[in-house]
Computed example of a mutant assay.
Amino acid sequence: MRTYQDYVQLAEERELKIGEIVLVEQAEESEKTESELRERMRLSLNVMRAAVQTGLSGERKSLSGLIGGDAAKVQARWKSGESLTGERISGAIARALAVAEVNATMGKIVAAPTAGSCGVLPAVLLTVEEALNCPEEDLVTALFTAAGIGMVIADRANVSGAEGGCQAEIGSAAGMAAAAAVELSGGTPGQTGDAAALAMKSLLGLVCDPVAGLVEVPCVKRNATAATIALAAAEMALAGVESKIPLDEVIDAMNEIGKQMPCSLRETAQGGLALTPTGRRIKAEFI
């Protein structure tokens, strides 16, 4: 079974980034060159950028009318200088909402690791890029780091809300984003694992309860809160704060929690927020 600690050990031994180790592994497994894989990942990065810009325009609305325009509202407050949380956190919130809104309105996104959690990774990556003026090549490498986390999660647990609850989707996305942010910021391989673990621990047990069965409420807003959790986890890890529970064990715990979750809280829209009076009303009106 794949472990993240294996990646950390290899990276430390070879004095490489986690993303570089993942890239080498993927080139060997896919029989493609590293250059080819980097170009494919660059295309994904470009789709993420485009989704952010499209969502921030505030012009898209979902068929249900529940989603659309919130990213633009947060951006307006952020740009006006009124932000309570500062430019970086507000920027991440706006970007995460933007991408998730594009998904809810049938636009083009990158599932990272799923469509329902697609806003977290681009929001964090592009916020760190803006803050540190990172070269694009570093962002591409960081995406391979995020992919490495995602592969370990998929191997040891899963990234499906229907199997593991929202912790498996949005929690995994937060872990992937936190690790990528640490690497972009010059952190060590071990710190990427700490960041991912800290982020995922904060979202353990999160249920998947989409109102009316749509990937809209509360899914879109969870992307925004998960992006802020990822940045908080990255900040702690870069400061030297360690996760007392290793990432691989956090992933295993998430898997066990998902198995114990009732079906009503795993994407069936039969529990949680979906069963509130307002949730029922929205479903009835939409149908």
Rank of each mutant, 00 (worst) to 15 (best):
G175I: 03
M176E: 15
A177H: 03
A177G: 10
A178L: 03
A179V: 01
A179M: 06
A180T: 00
A180R: 08
A181R: 13
V182S: 12
E183T: 05
E183H: 12
E183P: 09
S185A: 15
G186F: 05
G186S: 10
G187W: 04
G187C: 11
G187E: 07
G187T: 12
P189G: 12
P189S: 12
G190P: 06
G190C: 08
G190E: 08
G190V: 14
Q191G: 08
T192R: 14
G193P: 10
G193R: 10
D194K: 05
D194F: 01
D194M: 02
A195I: 05
A196I: 14
A196N: 13
A196S: 15
A196M: 14
A197C: 11
A197F: 02
L198D: 11
L198T: 12
L198V: 13
A199Y: 04
M200K: 03
K201A: 14
S202M: 13
L204A: 10
L204C: 08
L204V: 13
L204G: 07
G205L: 01
L206R: 05
L206H: 00
V207N: 08
C208H: 07
D209T: 11
D209I: 04
D209C: 04
P210F: 04
P210H: 09
V211F: 00
A212E: 04
A212P: 03
A212T: 00
A212L: 01
G213N: 11
G213H: 09
L214Y: 06
L214E: 07
V215I: 15
V215W: 00
E216N: 10
V217D: 05
V217L: 14
P218G: 10
V220W: 02
V220R: 04
K221M: 09
R222G: 08
A224I: 02
A224G: 06
A224S: 15
A224D: 07
T225R: 08
T225S: 15
T228P: 00
T228N: 05
T228C: 07
T228D: 00
T228Y: 00
I229C: 03
I229Q: 00
A230W: 01
A230S: 13
L231V: 04
A232I: 07
A232K: 10
A233G: 05
A233M: 01
